[in-house]
Design a protein around this nucleic acid. Structure first.
Lengths: 228, 228
DNA sequence: GCAAAAGTGTTCAGCATACACCCATGG
DNA sequence: CCATGGGTGTATGCTGAACACTTTTGC
């Protein structure tokens, strides 16, 4: 906004933070990256990856900096989810936090960084106790993810560049937490011309083998309609 | 979040604000309430209704306080839209702003308050030049409004308790900026049992008169599906 | 030859869209 | 009686959901 209530301008002692909700996919389950909190308050609980926003730092940049520090990952598709602003949400003071969410491919994730930061993946159905209102943050991010994953080709961030349709379906089943009819699913996928079948097959999951597909970004930009 | 980058904790001089995007409906057009900015920087331009968040004040409460101060309206349906956090978005310093949006019935709006605050309604197609990134804020709020108005019974906030179907249709046409088939529109409306026809007719717009309807909150809570 | 996963079509119901005429009334 | 806005029904195509068998291959 602007400068209406001038009186606040000097007094305000609100801190501004970002928290990152980082989704991964493993063992057919949607997972979340958390860090073990080694300090008070709430020491010993688990927490989202978060940090304070820097002076003269864009909010988006802050989220990316925090994510990078923790995961070593750059250029990750990351979106603002929402602001959490109850005055007492953080017991250490008035901290407003903006949540961002990202989807990363665990296999590209640098395992060294994980242990450096006491980070760990948890299936979203088996989360430990989280600090403050981080549970609410996770839930709102999951709702948003479930909404968006049906209308935008974002789930591919959780898969390798080459993936099979059974893999993709299991991913969707994991994210949406419901089972999907194979034939209906495949028909919809195959209508999207930007999902390109490769000649190569994945022979690791079955004797018959499943064709690999890839998501063609350029072709998608032409059609730009996605629906699953 | 929490307390990772402790170094920021003491230094941070970011200000936190809220900006309210207040929609009204008049003359079959969607309108927006703006205030004339009487001070530097950007003096003379128009601005959203905004203000800084108070110490120990919830974000939602801050938005409502600001709205109340300006419009005299309480208990308004108000929702967070998104955070705007580019470091240089406000030329007076690092100010992060969370936008909220509300829909109000102009006829309930206290006209005295408007002049007190140099506030004025503008049709959204004819907005004046706005300060900072307020134009972006408005656009994102309109996109969100258009999305939500199809799936939630929120548009009724822009109409009196008793309204006619022609009124409702013109409201939707105004919000969505497209024309809608009368018969299809009415069929969908009439399927919703919580839109109750009254005996009374509005004789002011035609000789034949149009039945008044009302939105029944309690009945809606039973069905809870809305689609227009 | 059989176990295990991959792959393939059709039917049906519900919903969105397009479209044109009669009704009630005040003047 | 007529001008004005209010009110009504049907046909068509599309999309989502349900549903079961054949194919391939390594063992």
């Amino acid at each position: 906004m602007t400068v209406y209530n001038k009186e606040y301008r000097e007094l305000q002692q609100i801190k501004l933070a970002v928290d990152c909700i980082i989704f991964g996919f493993n063992d057919n389950k949607l997972e979340l990256l958390l860090i073990h909190r080694g300090f008070e308050p709430e020491k010993g609980k688990w927490s989202l990856i978060g940090g304070f926003v820097g002076e003269n730092e864009d909010l988006d940049k802050a989220a990316n900096r925090v994510l990078y520090k923790l995961s070593g990952l750059e250029d990750i598709y990351m979106e603002q989810v929402k602001a959490f602003g109850k005055a007492d949400r953080d017991s250490s003071g008035h901290v407003v936090s903006i949540t961002y969410s990202a989807m990363i491919l665990k296999s590209e994730y640098n395992e060294d960084q994980v242990s450096n930061y006491n980070a760990k993946w948890f299936p979203i159905e088996e989360l430990p106790e989280l600090v403050f209102d981080h549970r609410d943050m996770v839930e709102s991010a999951i709702r948003r993810l479930r909404r968006r994953v049906r209308n935008f080709p974002i789930a591919f961030n959780l898969l390798p560049a080459k993936f099979t349709l059974p893999q993709l379906q299991m991913l969707y089943e994991g994210i949406l937490n419901e089972s999907i009819d194979k034939r209906n699913f495949r028909r919809k996928v195959l209508q999207m011309k930007y999902l390109v079948r490769l000649e190569e097959k994945d022979m690791s999951e079955s004797r018959k083998g499943a064709y690999f597909y890839r998501f063609d970004e350029a072709l998608y930009k032409v059609e730009k309609n996605f629906n699953l």
